[in-house]
């Protein structure tokens, strides 16, 4: 184990561990609102984490991450409608559906670079958005209530907010560990090499389309898992989950979090806690969130620029 890997794993454990501690304390004192908040942070952090891997490790800035989350949620909804609430079925199928979508669109999307890439991911996500909104069987644009919460081996583990929060943190921890390992493995090195200099990476024998497609598909699959939990937490699935605003929010979490994978957890927590706190006092909470974002960008100095490079 290299020192770099050890440090990244430790940071990841710290981030998820902190959330777990807060969750534990909240459960002890019976603070239901905080339990819900931790569950939401875990769910959004999972989706942001997957996006963060794409952005920071592969230089692939996707504005379509919400589509993967939403597809996961819709698979959950569809299975629950047919009486299939088993997580061991729902999670793989959700991941598979999002992976298939990412695999097909990735063939087109990954041929583009820079802004064209961003806009292509947006285009396919918008198609998915209008697509699910046109499904009368799932409530069309309004969406639909989830028939039943998901179960694990028949046990209703997601029945309570606490159950969802634990599941979210568990999946988040697993995904964070897995992606950190990948980051330090051959695939991670290949992705970064391709991000830094495509020609040199190609010359050194890296099959760029292959490694990028692998990352793109894997990250969509992880995001879909968060969709399964989101559907359970809201007891509801609507096309709004696939809206580009949601992709934008996830991107905000990623960029606020910075270049480390564990930063995505921080970014998600920052956005959701700010929203929760400020919206309790003023209906103009977006104004203050905006100011906060601008301030963070201005005050953080230039450290990100050098890390992302001008043409991130």
């Amino acid at each position: 184990m290299t020192p770099g890997l050890r440090k990244d794993l430790a940071l990841g454990a710290l981030a998820v561990g902190l959330l777990a501690v807060v969750l534990f304390v909240a459960l002890q004192i019976g603070a239901g609102g905080i339990v819900s908040l931790i569950a939401r942070i875990g769910i959004f952090a999972l989706a942001a984490l997957a996006l963060s891997f794409l952005v920071t490790q592969a230089g692939l800035v996707s504005l379509g991450q919400a589509a993967a989350v939403g597809l996961g949620a819709y698979v959950t909804l569809a299975l629950a409608e047919r009486g299939q609430s088993e997580l061991l079925v729902q999670l793989p199928l959700a991941a598979l559906a999002a992976a298939a979508f990412a695999g097909l669109t990735g063939l087109v999307v990954l041929r583009a670079r820079g802004v064209a890439f961003i806009m292509l991911t947006l285009a396919f996500a918008q198609m998915a958005f209008f697509g699910v909104a046109a499904l009368p069987a799932f409530g069309g644009d309004d969406g639909m209530a989830l028939a039943a919460r998901s179960t694990l081996l028949g046990v209703k583990v997601l029945r309570s907010e606490a159950g969802i929060a634990v599941a979210a943190l568990l999946l988040l921890g697993l995904a964070l560990a897995a992606l950190t390992l990948v980051r330090h493995a051959r695939l991670g090195l290949a992705l970064r090499a391709a991000m830094d200099n495509e020609r040199r990476a190609e010359a050194s024998g890296i099959n760029i389309p292959h490694v990028q497609l692998a990352a793109y598909v894997a990250c969509a699959a992880i995001a879909a898992l968060s969709g399964v939990l989101l559907a359970n937490q809201a007891d509801y699935v609507s096309p709004g989950y696939l809206n580009w605003h949601r992709s934008g929010e996830l991107l905000v979490m990623v960029v606020l979090g910075g270049r480390r994978l564990a930063g995505a957890v921080l970014g998600a927590a920052l956005v959701l806690v700010t929203e929760d706190l400020i919206s309790h006092y003023t209906e103009y909470w977006k104004f203050w969130l905006g100011l906060l974002i601008v301030a963070v960008v201005l005050l953080r100095g230039r450290d990100l620029s050098s890390l992302f490079g001008r043409r991130a």
């Binding site: 819900s36 937490q233 509801y236 709004g240 919206s279």
Partner: peptide, 23 residues
């Protein structure tokens, strides 16, 4: 206690849980 649902069902659910469980 006034809250904004942002016209998003899941945000509405999150805020409703806050109202019911926390407040």
């Amino acid at each position: 206690i006034v809250v904004d649902d942002e016209l998003k069902p899941d945000v509405g659910v999150a805020k409703a849980k806050g109202l019911i469980e926390r407040d």
